[in-house]
């Protein structure tokens, strides 16, 4: 078990066998925007938060009350994890480990992470492609059946990468969804593409029209968080995702 540096404190009881959806800050804030949209559309309530001394000394104030900036929202079947602040790069591995440890203790049915794949000419792209990776070979079919392209070979950097890896190690079913996105501009359209893929996989129907209609507002509101996230992404060497892997052994 991971040390006590990061604790997940449940203030509402969370049943076993839930699906855990992670929307953590990364390129285009795709996951964060998607998580916020899901929390609002599914009317999820706050059920847990993350307590840690590894974050800068920051709290979130809401209606005059202190809150953890990293929180979980949920219902009986779904738990959505998101953050209001950029995750410091040196906290990413510990955080991914404690999330996966917690998912394991909760006997999670699945862990799904939502995010983006940065493409330099994103502003020229009309129809965004959606990609995926899974923790276990038997789940690959689920991607193709749901019109999600499999990433055959390439690097993945950041919280999503580690969550997928740790889930694979612990035999937890995990899916990583990545829509083409901007590197450092908030991208609600990419979030809508990711949610649509999630709709297909989970056979649910979350309406995404609002994300498109209010896209400009979302982009404006997410500006500062994107700026902070970009600094952490640089420290994580996020641009390595652009690298072509060397030495190909067939």
């Amino acid at each position: 078990m991971v040390g006590e540096e990061i604790k997940i404190i449940e203030h509402k009881s969370i049943p076993e066998g839930v699906k855990i959806i992670c929307g953590l800050p990364d390129v285009g804030l795709v996951g964060v925007i998607a998580a916020a949209h899901m929390i609002s559309k599914l009317k999820l309530e706050e059920v847990a938060y993350i307590e840690t001394d590894l974050l800068p000394p920051i709290i979130m104030l809401e209606n005059g009350l202190p809150k953890s900036p990293i929180r979980m929202y949920g219902s009986k079947e779904i738990i959505v994890l998101s953050s209001e602040v950029a995750i410091p790069s040196n906290m990413v591995s510990l955080m991914a480990r404690s999330i996966v440890d917690w998912a394991w203790r909760k006997k999670a049915d699945k862990v799904l992470t939502l995010g983006g794949l940065p493409v330099p000419n994103r502003h020229e792209i009309e129809k965004l492609r959606i990609f995926g990776a899974v923790s276990d070979e038997s789940m690959l079919k689920m991607l193709t059946e749901n019109e999600i392209e499999i990433i055959q070979r390439g690097f993945l950097v950041g919280p999503q990468a580690l969550i997928l890896k740790y889930c694979a190690e612990k035999n937890i079913s995990a899916i990583t969804l990545l829509a083409e996105t901007f590197f450092n501009y908030p991208d609600p359209e990419a979030s809508s593409v990711v949610i649509q893929a999630l709709n297909r996989i989970m056979k649910i129907n979350i309406d995404v029209s609002e994300l498109i209609e209010k896209g400009e507002e979302v982009r404006l509101a997410m500006r500062d968080m994107m700026r902070r996230t970009q600094t952490e992404l640089a420290k994580m060497r996020k641009t390595q995702e652009y690298d072509v892997p060397g030495f190909y052994i067939r």
Binding site: F183, P186, E216, L220
Partner: peptide, 19 residues
């Protein structure tokens, strides 16, 4: 938010201007 890309023959600047 803005971005600057440098390639061998050009410098491309992009700026995000919602609203």
């Amino acid at each position: 938010l803005f971005n600057v890309f440098v390639s061998s023959d050009k410098v491309t600047v992009t700026v995000d201007l919602p609203k």
